[in-house]
Design a protein around this nucleic acid. Structure first.
Lengths: 216, 216
DNA sequence: GGATTCAAAATTATAGATAAAAAAGGAATC
DNA sequence: GATTCCTTTTTTATCTATAATTTTGAATCC
């Protein structure tokens, strides 16, 4: 099954590096030296290289042959690109998932949404946000689509963490509520349109707005 | 740039294996043994393993930890899924590319389309088809989107080659012509709708239809 | 100061060896 | 005869050591 955690050394290194890059602990453009991480993780360079390949596929690092890999940089154009891709694909997923959404699932989504609104920091809010989207999209039963959306979520999260360092208040997720309301009333077109607008909005707002003090 | 050919051993093995899988020379479900390919390519097992990771990311092979990698199988549901993803993403790309399409580009697309209609076999037709789509979508200037679409094209091609083995006639690409016509008249909504229908049709027709009759 | 040359470092790749897990095969048992 | 259990073999996953190629940085020279 896919849910089995990859317990190989390659898998652990991949997850750890992905977390660090998404959280912004490694700055974009930083060169990643295989021997350095091999030593840090007590492994050899081979699993480190394999982890690099996986991260490359997720778009978290870029690889130049014979010049190594560096953390992928993202400018505003890339952030918008990811947001538009997410909007398209999440709408597709929702269209297929909607007929299979039970009210139990929608109740759970509402609970997750409330948890997100009470989140103490960006990290917790992002986790709740991702859980919300994943929950209402999973019933589409399209594994490749869901995997691609997950990768795009990771790219979005990088941007979120990089722009929102400072004081942060959990927004009341009005869009999430509107989506759930539309889904309960089985107005799938309304739900899809709201979702598309919501995802694109996430992609554009923080970057143009907040840029003041940097607290960790 | 991305256009630099990856001349490392890993890159060559990746391309060669991807070609074979797409062309159907290796059956779905086949176990890929690293030592076998290491010997065949005169390389060691390390670059073979790295190639496996890249193919895994493209969805051409699936990997189970400690059990190796197998050529990804694809059933009709997966083919439909890929077609729907392509439709969504190509429409998005076209929306962004359309304003930048010059009549020179559209002329070139028309030439490629004619070449595709005269193609002697599926392989040549598929190449022309891919070139057509890529040509009219590239001006969107969204590299991640284009890369994702390329991966989906590869998945589509696998299906095409597996279902269309025998006698085959080049279809007159009515849809391609309609798309070009709409683009020339700057009716972008019409072009996008036609493209979406076209891509979904490619995904569904050969599997459900050409099982009984082998074309006349 | 700028260009050339040389040395150090990093990536890429090879080879052989080891550990661990899965698959295969065969013997003992019911 | 079929099943279970154990052994053998195969394959994956990993490490260590090392070579070759390339990049990079520094020192030198004009």
């Amino acid at each position: 099954m896919k849910s089995d955690i990859d317990n190989t050394v390659t898998g652990r290194i991949t997850r750890e590096l992905a977390d660090r890059i998404i959280a912004g602990h490694i700055a974009p453009g930083t060169k990643l030296r295989q021997d350095h991480f091999a030593e840090e993780f007590g492994a050899s360079h081979v699993p480190v290289r394999e982890a690099f390949r996986r991260l490359e596929a997720q778009g978290l690092v870029v690889s130049e042959p014979r010049r190594g890999v560096r953390v992928a940089s993202f400018d505003i154009a890339e952030v918008r690109e990811v947001a538009e891709m997410r909007a398209s694909l999440e709408v597709l997923a929702l269209r297929h998932a909607a007929p299979h959404l039970t009210s139990a699932i929608l109740d759970e989504a509402e609970a997750i949404n409330r948890a997100g609104e009470n989140a103490p920091d960006v990290r917790a809010w992002e986790e709740a946000n991702r859980a919300f989207h994943r929950l209402i999209l999973t019933p589409c039963s399209m594994p490749r689509l869901l995997a691609t959306i997950d990768d795009l979520h990771a790219a979005s999260a990088r941007f979120l963490f990089s722009g929102f360092r400072m004081e942060w208040e959990a927004p009341t997720d009005q869009d999430h509520r509107a989506i759930l309301k539309a889904l309960r009333e089985r107005q799938f077109d309304v739900a899809a349109a709201t979702l598309a607008r919501h995802v694109k909005w996430i992609g554009t707002k923080p970057g143009t707005k907040t840029r003041s003090r940097t607290l960790s």
